[in-house]
């Protein structure tokens, strides 16, 4: 499958003459050279792909370059070097007029602090992207009302942003970004400014919308729990570099380095890991119980069954073939030791 949006070897440097500097160092300067010449690297040599219908979460601490990277993807920031491919077309070579058209029809973005226009009602805010395209008033308000209903703000279309709570304001931000039915959806820490309870609710809401809409999503967060909850795949960034890209399970079981391992240490693995990652190969003549679990089951969901059984359980794959066994001891080790001890 071809990526919907991808970037290759993207750099963003700040300083006197970033292009010249990169060229002089063959497009890949060392950390020492960057510091010595007084440049500030925001994104270094980043490559990633987002496939149609996928949620890619870009995760990192503040200052790790995740916001800059996502702005390079939408060309809100001009990358110093590299390519950004949108449907296979290099976005960086697209002329300004055409870029506006792409943004008007194919991209949507949600912002951390909502970025609503304070002088416009909810309806006018949501209809804003349609308005700048020149869609006539009746059509755009009709469309805006539909989306307002979709995000659960029905009946509040005539409120002003100041009259809404933070969570409601972000619903407006989400509705606005969806108004033009974009293919690609960028979300820049959309829930970070909200209270924990509201944040959780909004995450559920987001997942609900995504099962209906199947957008291609680049989602930024600094919250690893949020990343795990939402992501199909996660890209972890540190000091401008993408350190690792993988499914949540891959990150937990095989962290690329200590930095990634630090994030995954406190994760509730039983909710994340599948039986496949704790099962062992079946030994000949080993006594097993009658029960069977599937290798795609989450450990948390079948732990009671395994721990309650004296004998190990058989593990089956999707076509009901037995591919391994899982013992009480393995599960208890995983649950309580919290060591990355995952054979199988």
């Amino acid at each position: 499958m071809d990526a919907k949006i991808a970037c290759r070897r993207v750099w963003k440097l700040y300083g006197r003459d970033p292009e010249g500097f990169l060229a002089a160092h063959g497009g890949d300067p060392s950390d020492g050279a960057i510091v010595a010449d007084g440049y500030i690297p925001a994104v270094r040599h980043a490559s990633l792909e987002v496939f149609p219908g996928e949620i890619l979460v870009i995760m990192g601490l503040s200052g790790s370059g995740k916001s800059t990277l996502v702005r390079c993807l939408s060309r809100l920031i001009e990358p110093t070097a590299g390519e950004v491919l949108f449907d296979g077309q290099d976005l960086l070579k697209v002329p300004a007029r055409e870029l506006i058209e792409i943004r008007r029809h194919k991209m949507g973005m949600v912002f951390q602090h909502f970025a609503l226009l304070p002088h416009r009602t909810v309806l006018q805010n949501v209809a804003f992207p349609l308005e700048v395209q020149g869609v006539d008033r009746a059509t755009r308000e009709q469309r805006a009302l539909e989306i307002i209903e979709l995000v659960g703000l029905k009946g509040r279309d005539r409120y002003y942003p100041r009259e809404l709570s933070g969570g409601q304001q972000q619903r407006v931000g989400i509705a606005r970004s969806l108004a033009v039915e974009p293919d690609v959806w960028f979300l820049d820490e959309p829930f970070s400014a909200l209270d924990p309870l509201i944040r959780r609710e909004m995450q559920d809401e987001f997942l609900r919308l995504q099962t209906m809409l199947r957008k291609t999503i680049a989602f930024i967060t600094h919250d690893f729990d949020e990343a795990i909850r939402l992501a199909d795949r996660i890209a972890i960034m540190n000091e401008g570099r993408i350190v690792q890209i993988g499914t949540p399970e891959e990150l937990v079981t095989r962290p690329a380095d200590d930095y990634v391992a630090n994030f995954t240490r406190d994760v509730a693995r039983e909710k994340l890991l599948t039986i496949a990652s704790v099962m062992q190969a079946p030994a000949v003549g080993q006594p097993v119980s009658d029960g069977t679990v599937r290798q795609t089951d989450k450990v948390a969901d079948v732990a009671r069954q395994i721990v309650g059984s004296e004998l190990p359980l058989r593990v089956a794959d999707d076509s009901d073939r037995i591919v391994g066994v899982v013992s009480r001891a393995r599960v208890l080790d995983m649950l309580f030791s919290r060591e990355p001890d995952s054979g199988g």
Binding site: R103, R104, M107, F111, Q112, H113, A115, V132, S177
Partner: peptide, 12 residues
């Protein structure tokens, strides 16, 4: 952010 929101909406 507000300015970026405008850009992403496709403002000239």
């Amino acid at each position: 952010e507000v300015r970026e929101a405008g850009t992403m909406a496709g403002c000239t």
